[in-house]
């Protein structure tokens, strides 16, 4: 089992990219699990026919902690096991601690043992604002981290910060930083800008994903591009990303 964390600035395309990756790998017969680590809980919706599934934290709250795996894990496209950690109502509680609680619950319910996934993706909220959002890269969780970025200043700035955080944890046996995924926004000179940031932080751009209108069209049907338009050029791009990721994590 390989565990992979996907980080990146808010709205940059983490969930879209991760879901397409999951779908592409599932279509090849691999058992995939995708865990959304974001109080918004919309990471897996395009694997679930547009449905927002109940979150781990909601279920803990509603069922007075009598939660079973079937209450929080749902099979979507290609048998991808979808989980949303969830979080408190905006403005109260502690979202970071929530991620930790959700992770502990998955462990307690032996989720990884039951589903035996070949690959687990953690789709993590933008900036690593506190300890809880670093949980997916702690010892025992993700083996590799990829950061999604575009050529926009703010996205690159966030990517650099996240890379720093990972580096700071280097001596702790945390996940390995494995590279940038460029999700293009068609800004001027984009490839070169991203390339430069990769060089400066000692990493590489593993794949450039073009911007494409099929992404929205698929999304409108509650699907990934891989599911909705499997023969399309854009689906091929995501498949190519899947190859690169697999190679990078040694599968």
């Amino acid at each position: 089992m390989k565990k992979i964390a996907i980080y990146g600035k808010g709205g940059i395309g983490k969930s879209t990219t991760t879901s397409n990756l999951s779908a592409a790998l599932a279509a090849r017969g691999l058992k995939v699990m995708q865990i959304g680590c974001d109080p918004k809980a919309d990471s897996t919706k395009n694997l679930m026919q547009g449905r927002i599934i109940p979150t781990v934290l909601d279920q803990i709250r509603q069922r007075d902690n009598q939660v079973e795996l079937d209450h929080i894990a749902f099979e979507g496209f290609g048998g991808v096991v979808c989980v949303e950690a969830g979080g408190p109502t905006p403005g109260i509680g502690c979202a970071g601690r929530g991620i930790i609680t959700a992770f502990q619950k998955l462990e307690e319910l032996k989720a990884y043992e039951r589903y035996q996934p070949d690959i687990v993706f953690y789709d993590v909220l933008g900036d690593v604002v506190c300890g809880g959002f670093a949980m997916p890269i702690r010892g025992g969780y993700a083996d590799n981290v990829f950061i999604v970025t575009s050529g926009e200043m703010m996205a690159l700035y966030a990517a650099t910060n996240i890379a720093h955080a990972i580096e700071n944890f280097g001596k702790r046996g945390y996940a390995k930083y494995s590279g940038l995924i460029q999700n293009s926004r068609n800004v001027e000179n984009e490839d070169a800008l991203v390339q430069q940031v990769a060089r400066e932080s000692g990493t590489q751009v593993i794949k450039i994903i073009p911007r494409h209108k099929l992404v929205q069209q698929a999304e409108n049907q509650g699907m990934t591009v891989v599911e909705a338009f499997p023969g399309s050029e854009m689906a091929r791009e995501y498949n190519c990303l899947a190859d690169k990721v697999m190679k990078e994590v040694g599968l």
């Binding site: 601690r97 930790i100 506190c130 300890g131 949980m135 010892g139 944890f169 001596k171 702790r172 945390y174």
Partner: peptide, 13 residues
């Protein structure tokens, strides 16, 4: 516990 310290991680460091 509340702030989610990773003492195993700190110990590794």
């Amino acid at each position: 516990m509340v702030i989610g310290s990773d003492l195993a991680g700190v110990a590794a460091e």
